[in-house]
């Protein structure tokens, strides 16, 4: 380091040095990074257990230096329920994409939220199936072209995109629900605060904490990483509005 300068930002220790397999500019990497920053800042690496899904983030356990379990497709919330019930003092989270959480795993998601299980769900919504080659997801926007909706999503035929944060926020078991985005440095900093808040609420045992992240997929959307920021801002956020959908601690602090 040069004389007269101090360190203001470095890679979090709990994010392993292994190169992540995600495409350039993918918010999955950003989300992995900031979850590990929060884990480092809270000093809870030894007490945190993640559950990874099937999808692009199936290998999440390769990058985070914490305990992990990989779940069968869509079953992350069921696995996390078992882990949290048997180890209630640990911080437990699932990390799931739109295919895992909102298609094959919808039942597990809704019922674990409804039961008010005390873990945190990180739901990464990029409106497409990245890993399998860019097919339509439950969250694909109306008119959005994918390899299985080449003329754009036709809502008369396949229904409307699912707004998961709004749906689960209706359930009594959910203590905290917010939709975030990682498209600017300010929004990344804000997302970190929300992750920390979710872990704090989990520690108090108040119920399910659900964070939906509006994400990107430059490869599946067939654009550059910088162009994907425009699609997020101009299209995704119009249908998936940001903000706190529910917060049972809102009046107490």
């Amino acid at each position: 380091m040069k004389d007269g300068y101090e360190l203001v930002y470095k890679r979090p220790d709990t994010l392993l040095s292994k190169r992540m397999h995600y495409c350039p500019g993918c918010f999955h990497s950003t989300m992995h990074k900031i979850i590990m920053e929060v884990v480092d800042e809270m000093g809870i690496a030894e007490e945190t257990i993640g559950v990874s899904p099937v999808g692009c983030s199936v290998f999440a356990y390769d990058y985070m230096d914490i305990d992990f379990q990989q779940a069968a497709h869509g079953r992350a919330c069921a696995v996390a329920t078992g882990i949290k019930r048997s180890l209630p003092d640990k911080f437990v989270f699932t990390y799931q994409g739109d295919g895992d959480l909102a298609a094959i795993g919808t039942a597990e998601t809704i019922h674990s939220c409804n039961r008010g299980e005390n873990f945190t769900i990180f739901f990464i919504n990029n409106a497409i199936y990245g890993m399998t080659g860019g097919q339509m997801a439950p969250t694909t926007l109306e008119g959005q072209k994918t390899s299985t909706s080449p003329y754009g999503r036709d809502v008369k035929h396949v229904g409307h995109p699912l707004r998961m944060a709004e749906m689960v926020s209706q359930l009594p078991g959910v203590a905290y629900c917010e939709r975030l985005v990682l498209n600017t440095p300010a929004n990344v900093r804000k997302a970190k605060k929300s992750i920390k808040k979710a872990f704090d609420i989990q520690k108090q045992g108040l119920g399910m904490t659900f964070l939906e992240v509006v994400s990107n997929c430059p490869s599946g959307w067939k654009c550059s990483p910088v162009q994907s920021l425009d699609f997020v801002g101009e299209n995704m956020l119009k249908y998936y509005p940001l903000g706190v959908k529910k917060d049972v601690t809102a009046n107490s602090n």
């Binding site: 470095k10 979090p12 990344v188």
Partner: peptide, 24 residues
């Protein structure tokens, strides 16, 4: 200016940022 915006947005945590110390 050492604002760290680049490091915060970098998905792959490839950037380390230093800022001029205030007390000189």
């Amino acid at each position: 200016i050492g604002c760290a915006n680049c490091a915060v947005i970098c998905p792959d945590a490839a950037i380390t940022v230093y800022r001029k110390s205030k007390a000189v």
